[in-house]
Amino acid sequence: MKIGKQTYLIDKPVYIVGNFSIVGPKEGEGSFGKYFGLVLNNDLWGEKSFEKCEIKMHRETILRAIYSSGLNENQIDAVMGGDLLNQIIATNFAAKDIDSIYLGIYGACSTFGEALGLASLLIATEQMKTITCSTSSHFSSAERQYRFPLELGNQRTPTAQWTVTGAGCSVLSAEPRAEQPKVKITAVTFGKVTDYGIDDENNMGAAMAPAAASTLIAHFKELDRSPAYYDAIWTGDLGKFGAGLLNYIMSSDNLPLSDTHHDAGAEYYRANQHPVQGGSGAGCSSTVFNSYLIDKLRKREIKRLLLCPTGALLSKYTPLQGATVPAIAHAVAIEAED
């Protein structure tokens, strides 16, 4: 049911019945290390290139998430997801080995929110029954695409972030799993592309904070809720500086986020891992959600969660051509059922 301009209430239940996450060794040593499904020993995983490793991570994450849901591949109506590589090749190639409809989507690091939202609508409108939502990113494949060679001896700027090596997948279904605590998606607010004129591609937190604020404000206003409605509000990868900026904008709109606000990127790594402002990447929110957050929801330590992955919409060439960095965010309300 559409409410307002951007929000949909998911009135037929859509359950999260399976999940899995695979991360690289650095991520395994980070704050959420013990929650991940699989931590790799090295960032190639026996493959010949970082792109091939990302494809393998993505494929294995989808397959293991399906396995964890107790379903089999034939019961999956669609595989939906994306990543950061050109032509979203990690997801495209991962889906090659899965016998199902494939829907590739792109929203940079917000892709996971977009996938959860679209899949929920497809299931709630009874077009499909079971959909996998997955995203991935890989530090080394992202660096070569967006920045400089790995061995180049340059410095990161003080607002830079560290792309997460990881893949996460959730399996959404109209039917709950009998023996499992029920976690369902209850509302989705899709974002608008928001450009506040930030022209520094190394300051993506500042570029994405207005997009996150725009989506969150629309979510709260259209559903007539306050931030206090949720036990936890998790943004995707704003980083420490970006998370502060989000709160600054929200406060100026009289919707201050209290200490229930967390940012997956800002909390992803430990300080001694030198991530500068924190983690980023399409795998950032999906790995944290499919490990730590889903765990908290199933244990009912979080009953109402608002997940808001954020994405900066740029290529290597747009900043060189003098363009600013537009961004987008999608918010998904997820609740643990009594």
Partner: peptide
């Protein structure tokens, strides 16, 4: 929502150097 001009000024003031 906050206007872009005020926001950009705030970002420049508070960005880590």
């Amino acid at each position: 929502m906050l206007d872009p001009k005020t926001y950009n000024e705030f970002v420049i003031q508070t960005a880590p150097k």
